[in-house]
Amino acid sequence: MDGGTLTAALVTLALWTYLYKDNPIFRLAEHLFVAFSTAWWVGELYRNYVKPVVLEDILQQGRWGMVLALLLGVILYARFVPAISWLARYPMSWMLGYGAGYVLAFQVKPLVGQITGSFLKFGSINSVLLWICIVSALVYFFFTISRENVAVSSVATFGKWVILVALGAAFGNTVLFRYTLLMGRVEFMLRDVLKVAQ
């Protein structure tokens, strides 16, 4: 067994000890994970952003216009200095403005497909059911009409059940996903470490 497999096996076992109860071995594995992932990200950010932009684009190729973006990035850290913390609002407002503009410009289009996809089509029973469920769920969130009206109240109650069924399906899928993750680890332990499975 190579060193990497042995380390992965030991860390996996260390994490599983938490299922019995919280203990120092679990804590060690947890802290190791945080430390390694932080180190990984520092390396990745340097390799993918700092090196190509600062060292190559600005210093080697002389693309000095990028200094402005770099400056905006550095100013973000001004919030840690109380006297000049207000400066950080400028890059932050730039980012928020860009983000809001981007979402409005590009993220709305896929929603249009969702809306047209939910139009009532009488061709199939599924389509009619889907339409009824969508309208009912929307009525549940419609608070400007009084719920004393029996018709509105009934549709809203049905809508609530539609939402609960959808949440149940989402939760069930999440549980199954967690089992698949566990299966990946168990397979690793039985196949690669203990070599009892194919």
């Binding site: 969702q114 996809g117 959808a166 399906a169 989402a170 899928n173 999440t174 199954l176 996903f177």
Partner: peptide
């Protein structure tokens, strides 16, 4: 699996 209900629409 957990993203299926979000993506299937």
């Amino acid at each position: 699996q957990m993203s299926v209900p979000e993506d299937i629409p």
